[in-house]
């Protein structure tokens, strides 16, 4: 469903992601854990292009959502002037490709043939990010409910603006979702009047109102008072049980153990370890992970 290929991301000179590849399959619940500053949020935000990767590709449902990364495509590199020159100087194609990838030799302009090939590849595979985002729900640490809109308007804004639903249909769906979380009476309230737990549950159903194929959660319970964590985790577990594909960055180890089909451990902008919850917690291999687990468990 989502495939990340060799993702790099730097902010100015600071490199935060250093080559991350992973695939999220339909129905999977992938939990990402790792120390603060390891790049978890950045990686999650790359998945819906709230951050643009510096290198690498993000594919959603077999469609490319960011720019082509030519280093991932040998057939593209072969069309570059640099590669042609190398081959002319009696290097075989294979070593030429390797050299170009290793030393990042591609320049801005690599000849007409290369440019056309990239263009063609883009045309065949790329989709507009705004389109992809409709199917990728996101839940933020700080809820980010629209302050100028009521709860109901928060839930209907996107489906109506994007002409996915009529106002009536959207409101009907919104009320059904509110009923599901027991907050129908808050339909006309403004976000500022809600508790943190209520806000986050509404943020979750705001994403659900778009009927997404996958949901991304960035520490959804970290900004909540302890007594409200439960209600949000319950809702997330319900979603998981219904078969929603989920990627969750969290520090809630209990949730990870119970819900995850796979856990990724990130450190220093790479995935250090990846395993089923059972193996992950009972038999960690990476040294940093062992250290991390000993602190949080």
């Amino acid at each position: 469903m989502i495939i990340a290929k060799n993702i790099y991301k730097s902010f100015g000179k600071v490199s935060v992601l250093n080559g991350i590849s992973c695939e999220i399959k339909k129905g999977e619940k992938v939990v990402i854990i790792g120390p603060s500053g390891s790049g978890k949020s950045t990686f999650l935000r790359c998945m819906n292009l709230l951050e643009t990767p510096t290198n690498g590709e993000i594919w959603f449902d077999d469609k490319l959502i960011n720019e082509v990364d030519p280093y991932l495509h040998d057939d593209l590199i072969e069309k570059s002037n640099t590669c042609k020159k190398l081959i002319q100087s009696n290097i075989d194609t294979e070593s030429a490709l390797l050299k170009i990838k290793e030393e990042k030799l591609l320049k801005k302009y690599e000849g007409k043939e290369f440019r056309l090939a990239v263009k063609e590849f883009t045309k065949a595979n790329h989709i507009d990010i705004n389109f992809a985002r409709r199917k990728v729900g996101m839940v933020f640490q700080h809820f980010n409910l629209f302050n100028n809109l009521t709860v109901l308007q928060n839930l209907t804004l996107a489906p109506v603006q994007l002409k996915i639903k009529t106002k009536e249909q959207a409101e009907e769906k919104a009320m059904a979702l509110l009923k599901r979380i027991g907050l129908e009476e808050k339909a006309n309230a403004y976000p500022s009047t809600l508790s943190g737990g209520q806000k986050q549950r509404i943020a979750i159903i705001r994403a659900l109102a778009m009927e997404p194929d996958v949901m991304l959660f960035d520490e959804p319970t970290s900004a909540l008072d302890p007594e409200m964590v439960g209600e949000v985790l319950e809702l997330m577990k319900d979603l998981a049980n219904e078969g929603m594909t989920m990627v969750v960055v969290t520090h809630e180890m209990g949730f990870a153990k119970e819900v995850a089909s796979r856990i990724l451990f990130m450190d220093g902008g790479v995935i250090k370890e990846e395993n089923s919850p059972k193996e992950f917690f009972s038999n960690p291999k990476d040294l940093r992970l062992k250290e991390f687990l000993s602190k949080v468990l």
Binding site: L50, L145, L149, L162, M210
Partner: peptide, 30 residues
């Protein structure tokens, strides 16, 4: 206006103009 407001709009698939007009500008005007 908090950056999270426009991020939430964009994450739902709204384009930049829609996000500005429906979410950011009303809050900015206020």
């Amino acid at each position: 206006v908090d950056k999270g407001q426009s991020e939430a709009g964009r994450a739902l698939g709204l384009n930049n103009t829609q996000t500005m007009l429906k979410i950011v500008v009303p809050q900015a005007v206020k």
